[in-house]
Simulated assay, not measured.
Amino acid sequence: MVCLGLCVRIGSNCLIDILCQRPDSAFMSKPDYLPSGFIHTLQDYVAERALPAAALQEEMSQCLESPSVPAQKFCELLAAVWEQEPVSALGVRLGLAAKPGYFGVVGYMVSYCGTLGQALARYHRYQRLLQHGLVSRAELKEGALRMRWTQSVANTPLASEFSLAVFVSLCQALIGRAITPLRAGLPFPKPQDVGMYQALLGCPVDFDCSAIELTIPAHLLALPISGKDPYLLRLLEQQAQALLNQLPQMDDAEAGASFHRVQEQILESMKNGDVSAVAVAAALGCSVRTFYRQLRSAGYSYRGLLAHTRHTLARQYLADPALAQTDVALLLGYSEQSSFIRAFRSWTGMTPGEYRSHLERKAGSAVR
């Protein structure tokens, strides 16, 4: 899975903003998680090729019931597809079929940015919502953007191929046109059929590299994104920032990953209005008893986590005058506005309407 940390400014010919996201050493041996949406590329490939893999399809469908999948499990699924059809550059073929929506809230958010450069900057800012076990670097120099990244868990040859191709696919989907990289690199020995990699990626490909590498022309960063929508971008960025602020700074990365998966599933469950512990636990594939026990071991209660998530997002949403109170209630998974009003009063001591009036008075005072 590619979660490339990147922040660039266009128009400079020098080394700029080299940003490294380095997970702590304790995390390197702990589980990592990816958005489960990437499994759709595997499912589609198996179906399109009519491969005799009914059990594998069922296993992938079960993994899709959760918003995240362990990186190790994703590597195993990639290997299982390759065993069904051991073709050259399979990871590249699969990755090029990925869509922005497979990246979750971050994918949707970057789809509404103005330019590719802006999208990649936000991608960096919120990459912790996608994957922790990552080290990345970007360099803009002499008219080219060179990107390098490594993955502590999803580091098999197939996963590395997939990661490289997924990033190319994301960039192409954002600007609505094919891109021709200047060069690519992969961290495994040179295969026999190098030509297939070069044909699929459209550029020279190096092997035995120390990291996954991709170099693209810098002018691509200025290209507009066809789905630009400032309002939706602001709304999704508010949600992403609120979630990022909530991520626990834990030494125990496994506990942190569990927190992240629960929070992701709460967001998913808000869409259909059922954020009960039973529904969330079932979506995560565990019993309610196990679900509660895992949360307790990480120092959380489900009721507290749900309330904190709703409270944080409610304040973000109510600060947006374009959203009606009924819309805010629905976004937070409340079937009735009255339930939202009672909950908000218990959090803040005022109703949503009173809170908005408070924000308006505060803004008016600042203007004066």
Rank of each mutant, 00 (worst) to 15 (best):
residue 44 D to E: 12
residue 6 L to M: 04
residue 65 E to K: 12
residue 96 L to Y: 04
residue 137 R to K: 15
residue 264 E to L: 15
residue 87 V to R: 15
residue 133 G to K: 10
residue 18 I to H: 00
residue 9 R to E: 03
residue 321 P to T: 10
residue 184 A to I: 03
residue 49 R to D: 03
residue 259 F to C: 06
residue 77 L to R: 11
residue 276 S to W: 04
residue 177 R to C: 07
residue 109 M to G: 04
residue 321 P to G: 13
residue 22 R to A: 11
residue 220 L to E: 00
residue 153 V to F: 00
residue 5 G to Y: 02
residue 9 R to C: 01
residue 354 E to P: 04
residue 362 K to A: 12
residue 362 K to R: 14
residue 100 P to C: 01
residue 156 T to K: 04
residue 146 R to T: 11
residue 7 C to F: 12
residue 104 G to R: 03
residue 148 R to C: 14
residue 49 R to N: 08
residue 201 L to P: 03
residue 237 E to S: 14
residue 13 N to Y: 02
residue 160 S to F: 02
residue 185 G to Q: 03
residue 292 Y to M: 04
residue 94 L to H: 03
residue 329 A to T: 11
residue 182 L to H: 00
residue 187 P to N: 00
residue 265 Q to W: 03
residue 166 V to M: 09
residue 70 P to F: 08
residue 267 L to Q: 12
residue 184 A to C: 09
residue 333 G to D: 07
residue 351 T to A: 11
residue 234 R to T: 11
residue 82 W to H: 14
residue 361 R to F: 05
residue 186 L to D: 08
residue 28 M to D: 10
residue 292 Y to V: 02
residue 146 R to H: 11
residue 244 L to K: 12
residue 207 F to T: 00
residue 156 T to D: 01
residue 67 P to E: 06
residue 51 L to A: 06
residue 6 L to E: 02
residue 168 V to D: 01
residue 72 Q to P: 07
residue 321 P to W: 13
residue 367 V to W: 13
residue 90 L to A: 05
residue 24 D to L: 08
residue 117 G to D: 01
residue 128 R to T: 08
residue 350 M to A: 08
residue 169 S to I: 01
residue 307 A to T: 11
residue 285 G to P: 14
residue 133 G to P: 08
residue 215 T to M: 11
residue 84 Q to K: 12
residue 175 I to M: 15
residue 332 L to K: 08
residue 213 E to D: 10
residue 65 E to N: 15
residue 308 H to A: 13
residue 358 H to Y: 12
residue 299 G to Y: 05
residue 320 D to R: 08
residue 317 Y to F: 15
residue 19 L to E: 11
residue 337 Q to V: 15
residue 269 S to T: 08
residue 322 A to S: 12
residue 306 L to E: 08
